[in-house]
């Protein structure tokens, strides 16, 4: 059994519309080891959610994986049929979403929604599925689990619904949990509880987590390794401590600086100038160059490769790639 649970090689997911193709994910490579939590970080629109939907095989109809492979547990998911993916989804790979308020079906009870996945994948009776659902609800912190089974989503708060989502995702004991901004829609105290719960669940079920977020606080709290994405590409990859100590890509540095700090009193919170380029009008050269304070001619002319600058720390930036006569200005 290999150590890597999930390996993505050069994944390209493009969207096709009348006005042409839009490279939402443009050749990313990443891996998640068993029992590891990897955070995928980036601004909205950088392709992190599309990456997760590509893994799940749940891309919208206009989106298509045009190149690359997604090796999960030794099998290439890109080549799998719909039926094969259905056996995998919610069974080996589960997913929780950003909006707990709308991610549950309003007209079905919590019990029905948790049990349907268990019955589908475990081929158990309704009674056994019910017992499993109660067990899971207790595990995610509902003391009155039996009652919750017959309640409807609107009767629960946002935090409780996210707990239900976690119970639902973990009920089949998946190997990989993809969490797409699981705490973004929750208030801060509830966020902490949900993160704590995810850590507990991860330990108990020995699950790997691919955590998609733009919140560096969440990253620091949860992740073993961090992958920073910008405009459909990986720009930096490092262990969590290394990344927070030595953020190397100017974009990562910018992200770090934009987090409000309790220690220093700042006049004004730092923000990276400009906006994320729309994927259909990407700049030539380095995609971050137009917003980068350290960019020079070369950055606008060609695109840097992802290069390892220290063990386990890779950066896509010319600052770390010496070339004759082209010193940083």
């Amino acid at each position: 059994m290999s150590q890597e649970l999930l390996q993505i090689h050069n994944l390209k997911t493009y969207f096709f519309s009348d006005s042409g193709k839009i490279p939402a994910v443009d050749g990313i490579t990443l891996s998640v080891k068993r029992r590891e939590t990897v955070a995928l970080v980036g601004e909205s629109g950088c392709g992190k959610s599309i990456t997760s939907l590509s893994i799940m095989g749940l891309l919208p109809e206009s989106g298509k994986i045009v190149d690359g492979e997604i090796i999960f547990n030794g099998e290439n998911l890109v080549k799998k049929t719909d039926a094969e993916m259905e056996r995998l989804r919610g069974n080996e790979i589960s997913m929780i979403f950003q909006e707990p308020m709308t991610s549950l079906n309003p007209v079905l009870t919590i019990g029905e929604q948790i049990m349907e996945g268990i019955i589908l994948h475990r081929k158990v009776s309704k009674q056994e599925a019910r017992e499993r659902a109660v067990q899971m609800l207790k595990l995610v912190g509902f003391p009155r689990a039996e009652e919750i089974l017959s309640e409807y989503p609107h009767q629960l708060s946002g935090g409780m619904r996210q707990r239900v989502m976690i119970a639902m995702a973990m009920a089949t004991n998946p190997k990989l949990l993809i969490a797409d901004e699981p705490t973004t829609a929750l208030d801060v105290t509830i966020q902490a509880q949900i993160l704590e719960l995810m850590r507990e669940v991860k330990e108990k079920f020995e699950t790997s987590i691919l955590l998609i977020t733009h919140d560096l606080g969440v990253v620091a709290e949860m992740a073993d390794r961090v992958i920073v994405m910008y405009a459909g590409k990986v720009v930096e990859e490092a262990g969590v401590e290394e990344l927070f100590e030595k953020p190397s890509h100017p974009y990562t540095e910018g992200l770090m600086k934009s987090v409000p700090s309790l220690e220093e009193s700042q006049q004004r919170l730092y923000s990276i100038r400009g906006n994320v380029p729309s994927p259909d009008e990407l700049p030539k050269g380095c995609r971050f160059a137009p917003r980068c304070d350290k960019a020079w001619d070369r950055c606008f002319a060609s695109e840097p490769d992802l290069k390892e600058i220290a063990p386990g720390h890779a950066v896509r930036c010319f600052l770390y790639q010496s070339e004759e006569g082209n010193e940083p200005r």
């Binding site: 799940m56 709308t102 349907e116 589908l120």
Partner: peptide, 15 residues
């Protein structure tokens, strides 16, 4: 288009 439909698909239910 609703989120709960995506959740249901993510559970592995067929279309």
């Amino acid at each position: 288009q609703q989120d709960y439909v995506r959740t249901a698909r993510a559970k592995g239910l067929s279309k």
